[in-house]
Amino acid sequence: MNVQIKSEQDGSVGYLELEGRLDAASAQPVRDILKSFAEAAQEPRIRVDLSKVSFIDSTGLAALISGLKAIRARNGSLTLEGVRPEVMRVFQVTLLDRVFTFGPAAA
């Protein structure tokens, strides 16, 4: 597996920390976790720490989009934290940087 996942959930607040590459080999578990976070509570507030993710491709994007949709359907929010400058490229080129909410890396 190209990615390591750490997750915590407390009521409607969820935190996901990823490390490695988010691509076709590793996207599915991320997709599943985001979905389960979204379904666990009303108005889920989810943070995903991407500061240790060195690479995201379109499949990884798709996983994040599916998570975003599921979370929005419950009136929740999803914040992507600490996205590295080179990784931002994939959001910028696809114009998805207008759709996601970004935040700085957790201290």
């Binding site: 379109s58 499949t59 949709k69 994939v90 080129v93």
Partner: peptide, 21 residues
Amino acid sequence: TLPDPEWLLEGGYGLYLMQQL
């Protein structure tokens, strides 16, 4: 091939990325 970002389609970005980059 770029899908409108607001549609939040889950596919179709791969080819677009190739074309753009």
